[in-house]
Design a protein around this nucleic acid. Structure first.
Ligand SMILES: [Mn+2]
Ligand SMILES: [Mn+2]
Ligand SMILES: [Zn+2]
Ligand SMILES: [Zn+2]
Lengths: 171, 171
DNA sequence: ATGGATAGCGAAAATGATTTTCAATAGTCC
DNA sequence: GGACTATTGAAAATCATTTTCGCTATCCAT
């Protein structure tokens, strides 16, 4: 394996989004290919975790706890250590995206091609998350990073506020 | 005090940025006023912590650990519990801004009027953070939130990438 | 100013998400 | 099939942050 020591230390590697291989997550057996290409092994656990995200609406902004729970509901018991390891690997491979939606935990969702990147509007009271797309966002991100010589990995625009229903609850 | 139970649970209260009281952090004794207005008490610890941020370039994206350390260097020993409590209160009062620059810890900086809000470009390899301003960002944030009936609290645009010097190190 | 009520302090213990350790297992490649 | 070693699960370890609790200091009313 390429970098065994700090490998699991989040995306500290120069593994950028590869526009040449966009829909990998759709196909059933491609996971093995993607993993092996980078020296990882294909395992049933990793496939099941990815499956969870691919069954659309179900998955979407899942944290480790929710993944563990939803897998249990599907009759699959996968340890937390395995879940965390799989998430890191898939983020590294560009299959998943890690999100900081505030609160002390990380959320994950299927990664999308850079230009289709969406952003988030979070209610700090109830945790409700809405998504939106906006091309100017990604433009600003990429122009800002190239003008400083940064190689862009990804942008996150997160808007915090209070959703309509929480507003009425709080007066 | 208004909401004793979940009070310290981050900014879950409807305490929006007040454009009428912008430069509070500049003045020396205003902290007491701001605290008392909301039922908090003025303490030397809170003043010293705020002082740290106000001595500009020194402070800027400080986490609890760094605050504790820099206070020690100034000969002030303030416990972590007090530091964390003070940070929460000051965020709640709009004096400080809490940032999620990735990595499992939170950073703080002096809050600025909404329209002057700046954003961050983070090197995921060395942690170097650069700031930039962009009006479109805040526009998109506010239009997006009003169009959904959210009451806006704040926006964070964070761009992740690899800085020039880390790029050369990594080949 | 004085005094009572109680918010805030520090030290230590608790929490909770994530990471690591380690022996057993299972992909990959020959 | 067999060697090599990445991956797994369970349990222990980390680490930032939060809570608890007895004591102190601030605030407000007298
Ligand atoms: Mn999303
Ligand atoms: Mn900043
Ligand atoms: Zn809400
Ligand atoms: Zn760097």
């Amino acid at each position: 394996m390429a970098n065994p020591t700090n490998f699991f230390n989040r995306s500290e590697t120069t593994m950028e989004y590869d526009p040449a291989s966009p829909e990998l997550n759709q196909e059933p057996e491609l996971l093995k290919t993607v993993l092996n290409k980078e020296g990882f092994r294909f395992t049933s656990q990793r496939q099941k975790i990815l499956d969870l995200f691919q069954s659309a609406a179900l998955g979407h902004h899942l944290n480790a706890e929710e993944i563990h729970q939803q897998l249990l509901e599907r009759g699959e018991k996968i340890s937390f250590s395995t879940i965390y390891r799989a998430l890191h690997v898939m983020v590294r491979l560009g299959l998943l995206q890690e999100l900081e939606l505030a609160e002390g935990r990380k959320y994950y969702e299927l990664n999308t091609p850079f230009m289709d990147q969406h952003h988030h509007l979070v209610c700090v009271h109830c945790g409700n998350v809405e998504e939106f797309e906006d091309a100017t966002m990604t433009q600003v991100g990429s122009s800002e990073s190239t003008s400083r010589g940064f190689s862009l990995l990804n942008c996150q625009f997160t808007v915090y506020g209070i959703c309509p229903s929480c507003q009425s609850l709080l007066g």
